[in-house]
């Protein structure tokens, strides 16, 4: 036999109130081990309060070749931003 430990992506919440952020990846035979390894590899310096692990093969990523159609149409939708609207200067907070 020579099957290699699969790759896992590691997400860590640095402190409560913050979202989980992608920290990196590592190899592990199963989810339990991935969690333990993530704890030992990515939180050695007190960097986290919660860990998510997901096997890399289960992540579906968008294709950068489609970036044009996916993301550029959002660029000119200025009316989604507050600065698009004119209001009198006297109104300070809105």
């Amino acid at each position: 036999m020579s099957k290699n430990w699969p790759l896992w992506e590691i997400f860590v919440r640095s402190k409560n109130g913050l979202e989980h952020r992608h920290f990196g990846s590592l190899h592990a035979a199963d989810a339990e081990m991935a969690l333990e390894n993530a704890r030992d590899v990515y939180t050695r310096r007190n960097e986290g309060v919660s860990i998510w692990v997901v096997e890399s093969k289960y992540i579906t990523a968008s294709n950068p070749e489609h970036n044009g159609e996916l993301f550029e149409p959002a660029q000119d939708k200025v009316y989604r931003h507050p600065t698009f609207y004119d209001i009198p200067d006297e109104i300070k907070h809105m």
Binding site: W5, L26, H27, M33, E36, N37, D40, V41, R44
Partner: peptide, 11 residues
């Protein structure tokens, strides 16, 4: 036996 395990044992 693996880099990950090495790190764990050192911890």
């Amino acid at each position: 036996p693996s880099l990950e395990t090495d790190i764990a044992c050192t911890n």
